[in-house]
Amino acid sequence: MKLFRRNDQDVQVTVRPRDGGWIVSLEGQELPWPVQRDSQGGWYVDTPAGRRRFWAHARQDGCLVFGDGRSHRFELPDPEHEQEEGNAGAGPRLVVDMPGKVVKVLVAVGDDVAAGQPLVIMESMKMETELAAAIAGTVRAVHAEAGQVVGQGDLLLEIEPREEE
């Protein structure tokens, strides 16, 4: 359950997956139609009035949503307030959100990595960024190589989390 701020009011929101989509409840009231993901990274909701399409950009402090010619902003007044439902055994994956080019892969399969250790150097719009591990672990798979052009949603690395000492 999360709190979102809409027009100066806090709304309790819960999200549950169902049949490939998500059922959302606002203040305990379930919306009758699921939110679904489309093939281009956008969203849609099939309502009796037709298919409503949306685009969203989630950020640390909330989410921007675009639909019907206008944008909305919903803030997360309390970003830490969330219940994580862990799916034990699913290793974290490094997936890119922005098109760019891999400049250099700094690790190989089997390497132990520490939290904060740089993994991949990326270039996008003439700016270079180092991508680092936020957790300690072992590199399980590498799906990127130097010079590779990557697009939104591409998987670069998989890391098996390691228990902290």
Partner: peptide, 22 residues
Amino acid sequence: LALAVAAVAEHTRNGADHGRGC
């Protein structure tokens, strides 16, 4: 509806179905 989409987008971004990552 926009808020519902925001919630799902935010939920899948942080990944409520897995741990922290990179």
